[in-house]
Write a protein that binds this DNA or RNA. Structure first.
Lengths: 135, 135
DNA sequence: TTGTACTGTAATATTTTTTATTACAGATAA
DNA sequence: TTATCTGTAATAAAAAATATTACAGTACAA
C-alpha cells in the first residue's frame, strides 16, 4: 500500500488547475485526506527533479516549475522512486546452486526491462493530458 | 520488499532445468534461502493458474503442468498477484474537492494501463526463454 | 520588530505488509 | 506403520509506509 505516486500526481493536478497560485501543503493535504508532512516529503522529490518550485515563509507554497505540457507521468514516476514493479527479493539465493548463483542477475535485467516498459508507457502522458480528463 | 515473483520464477526455473523430477518445497527453499512454507504458498497460486502440478505424500513435490515454451512470465506475474506497480492510495480524497472527487477513477484507469504494459512486456518472454539465458 | 504562516526536516509512533516459524492434519510410498 | 511429503492455519517477527509531534528557519505584514 504505497500512495506516493498518487500523492504526487494529485498535487501536480491541483497546481495545474490553479496556475500562478502557490498552494500550501496543508491545503493540498486537506484535498486528499493525507498528512501534510507526507505531502512535503513528496514535494521534496519533485523539486529535486525540477518539476516544481517551492517558496518558504508566509504566503509560501508550491507551484509548477515547468508548463504542464512538459511534465510527463514518467517524470513523476522516476521522481517518487517507487519500489520495483516486480518486487525485490530480500533473500540471497544459494551460491552453490547453479541456478541460485545466476538468477539474481537475470532477474535484475528483467526488472530493468519492465521498468523501461512502464516509463515508456507513462512518458506518453503529460500532466496536462491527465488533467484534461477532468470535467 | 516483495519477493513473490522472484520465488515463483526461481521455482519454475528449477522445474524447467530438471524436467520429469518432482522437487520438494524444502529442496527449492534451500536453493533460494527462503522459508519452505512461503514456497508452498506461491506454489498454490501457480497451481491455481494451471502452471504447475503437485503431488502429495512421500515422494511428492512439484512439476510443470505445461511445456516451458507455453508458460510466459506474464502468466507468472498474473498468478502471484503483486500489488499494483504505481502503488495504491489508502486515503480517500476529499469528495468536496472537484479534483479529489474524480481523481480516483482517473488514477485507476492509469494503473490499468500500466499493468497492461507490464503484462504485454512479460508476455513476450517464456520460462523457456528465461532459462535459456543460463550457462 | 514582532507576530503569523508557511517550508524543511528530524524523531517517533502507529499501522500495514511481508516473511518466518511453528504446528499439525492428510496423503502416499516404502 | 513409519517416514516424508503437501496443504493450511495461526502466530510471531521483521520491514515498510504513513501519521504525528516538534521545532528551526524563512518571509511577509502589521
Amino acid at each position: 500500500m504505497n500512495g506516493q505516486f498518487q500523492i504526487a500526481t494529485h498535487v501536480l493536478t491541483l497546481l495545474c488547475k490553479q496556475p500562478g497560485e502557490l498552494l500550501s501543503s496543508d491545503y493540498v493535504a486537506g484535498s486528499m485526506n493525507v498528512n501534510p508532512v507526507l505531502v512535503r516529503k513528496e514535494m521534496r522529490k519533485l523539486r529535486a527533479c525540477g518539476l516544481i518550485e517551492s517558496k518558504e515563509g508566509k504566503t509560501g507554497g508550491y507551484s509548477l516549475a515547468l508548463p504542464p505540457q512538459k511534465i510527463t507521468l514518467a517524470d513523476v514516476y522516476k521522481a517518487v522512486k517507487l519500489p520495483p514493479a516486480l518486487g525485490q527479493a530480500k533473500n540471497k539465493p544459494n551460491p552453490d546452486c547453479p541456478v541460485g548463483k545466476q538468477i539474481g542477475a537475470h532477474l535484475d535485467n528483467l526488472a530493468d526491462d519492465v521498468e523501461a516498459a512502464i516509463v515508456k508507457k507513462l512518458s506518453t502522458i503529460t500532466i496536462f493530458d491527465f488533467v484534461n480528463q477532468f470535467d
